[in-house]
Design a protein around this nucleic acid. Structure first.
Lengths: 208, 208
DNA sequence: CGCGCGGGTGAGCAAGCGCTTAGGCCTCCT
DNA sequence: AGGAGGCCTAAGCGCTTGCTCACCCGCGCG
């Protein structure tokens, strides 16, 4: 992916954020948080990456934590949406699970900077903000669990421990954000396809 | 687990560190790093938890980063050792893989504080220290990959992508450190058993 | 006895932090 | 034309940070 395409994708990811300066700040913050972690990132660094003075940040966001909260909110909504689309689609549990894992894992690879921030910087959120985000996470979990439960009920899957297996599947996908690198040998599509296959085996779906 | 047993296990985990004050500091630092992250933890906090003044830390460690490096080193050696024991044991690839995943996942649950630090605070290490730790990680990875490769070669497993599957298995185990809680419904033993089963399915080992 | 040395303290330094303030420049509306 | 309001900056405040320094204590040994 060239620099121009990358920029296009980045601006698309935060398309809902306006005005332009606020969007540039979110984008800069995601980069910095993913690279160094929330606490190691300074407001001066964020503002610098966005091409403005440190004080400009506070015109658009009350605190540094609010910036993290906004990023976390948008990212988790997106993740929930992806899982929801797969869960509510027509088709067998096998088809829905394959689709869910493929798209969810792929998103974590493609947007691994954003995913890294929303998955590993949660503890830096205020209690109130954390509670809000935790709710989005529970809803995502519930959607996936329902797919697996459906497959177990219909006999498509053979799973002894539905909540435990759900946790493992989610965990597997989330951790993609930790290790994935754009310079690595795998494309996001390949990761999605591989993970979907592995998960179908985990739930004991019959081989195709 | 009662407080006394916990303390016993903690002191055992860092038994190699001496003198006593240095050990108390490592133990305090692991707790603090796991709770709040490396950068959000102050040297005053670490010293306070260990029951000494901030200056005492610098008698035993040159910098805060050295403390993280020591923790990371000991933890990664332990993880490598666990994987090595399973890889070099006698038995079929199936038996070795089951044992590797069970003990590796269980360790990440039982010592989730330590595991959290060594898995998620790597970026805070200096370049030189990081390189050293990265080598330990590569060796762990290689041991697991060899087990899976053996099973694929012997026909016990059916895996299309050996490196990819290895990565997924390792990823699954490591991520236990992120979500595991001693207050949760699962014991470390149960996590190990569940994960071993799931992984044997992932590699297409015949069901027992 | 006294003396060195390993392990400890209280106070504090320089630097960097999140965030604020006072003020300036555009652009748009009346 | 003139003034209001959105967006931005230079400067800097108050505080915390990692780390140091001068000094102190208790214990083993010639």
């Amino acid at each position: 992916m060239g620099a121009a395409e990358w920029a296009a994708q980045e601006s698309e990811e935060w398309a809902g954020v306006s005005p332009d300066a606020a969007r540039r700040l979110v984008s800069a913050a995601v980069e910095a948080f993913a690279e160094r972690g929330y606490h190691a990132t300074t407001t001066r660094d964020i503002a610098g990456r966005a091409g403005m003075s440190p004080a400009a940040l506070y015109i658009h966001y009350k605190t540094k934590e609010e910036l993290l909260y906004r990023i976390s909110g948008i990212g988790h909504e997106k993740a929930l949406h992806i899982m929801g689309a797969a869960a509510e689609a027509a088709g067998s549990a096998t088809e829905r699970l394959r689709d869910a894992v493929r798209t969810f894992a792929r998103w974590h690879a493609e947007h691994h900077t954003t995913a890294r921030v929303i998955q590993y910087e949660l503890q830096a959120l205020s209690d109130v903000h954390y509670a809000e985000i935790a709710d989005l996470r529970r809803r995502t979990d519930r959607l996936l669990r329902q797919i697996i439960q459906d497959g177990a009920d219909s006999g498509e899957f053979r799973v002894g421990d539905v909540p435990g297996t759900t946790l493992a599947v989610l965990s597997l996908c989330v951790d993609v954000a930790r290790w994935f690198s754009a310079d690595g040998p795998r494309t996001p599509d390949e990761v999605g396809a591989l993970y979907a296959d592995l998960v179908l085996r985990m739930v004991g779906a019959p081989p195709v």
